[in-house]
């Protein structure tokens, strides 16, 4: 068989966005096991007990993260409708809200009344820390996408990087939906 130049034959059914989307979801499944195990660790060690945490700060950063999900969603919807100006602003808002959330977690760490050398402290700092690491990486990804968005790289036909990074951002929010009650509310 001759080695024919085969770029031409291509598989018509292959849709890269579809591949990427499934791949990203599979990555989320895998990550949910990570976060699920951290939650399990928390309940294994501490039962449904917790120590004193700053409730107002917790509620505030939760609302901020939720708000950032809304802005991210709006940015994605905007670029799907080819509205680059709105997408640009809302993506920037998402990044800013993400930074505020991360700062809130940092403040929480600084003012925490328990130490990392005991079980609840270990669980609390690890869970918020791993989550914050995802937030920070999400900010980084959104920032890279935002730069390209400003350069006009994306439009309604080609916007997977925006959609993908926004999906990642939502996933980080979903994780917090479970972490927030487990760390702050359960008693």
């Amino acid at each position: 068989m001759a080695v024919a130049a085969s770029a031409a034959h291509g598989h018509a059914t292959h849709n890269p966005v579809r591949f990427n989307r499934l791949g990203l979801w599979l990555f989320f499944f895998s990550e949910s096991i990570l976060f699920g195990l951290l939650l399990t660790t928390r309940f294994f060690l501490e039962g449904i007990e917790r120590e004193h945490v700053d409730q107002h700060l917790g509620l505030a950063i939760t609302i901020i993260l939720l708000l950032s999900s809304l802005t991210a969603f709006t940015a994605e919807t905007a670029i799907e409708h080819n509205n680059q100006r709105v997408a640009n602003w809302f993506l920037m808002a998402t990044i800013v809200l993400g930074i505020i959330f991360a700062a809130g977690v940092g403040f929480e760490w600084k003012t925490a009344e328990f130490s990392r050398h005991e079980a609840f402290g270990s669980v609390f700092f690890t869970m918020t820390g791993i989550h914050a690491a995802h937030v920070v990486s999400g900010i980084g990804i959104l920032f890279l996408v935002w730069i390209q968005l400003k350069r006009g790289k994306f439009n309604s036909k080609n916007h997977w990087p925006v959609s993908g990074s926004v999906m990642y951002w939502h996933f980080v929010d979903v994780v917090w939906v479970f972490f927030y009650p487990a760390l702050y509310l359960v008693k």
């Binding site: 509620l59 999900s69 809304l70 709006t74 509310l185």
Partner: peptide, 26 residues
């Protein structure tokens, strides 16, 4: 757009649920 409106409504529901969760827990 309509899609953005839908997102806003969902976000409001989520916010209400969060606050309800907080009040319920305390």
């Amino acid at each position: 757009t309509a899609a953005m409106q839908k997102g806003l409504i969902v976000a409001v529901i989520l916010a209400v649920l969060t606050v309800a969760e907080y009040i319920f827990a305390t």
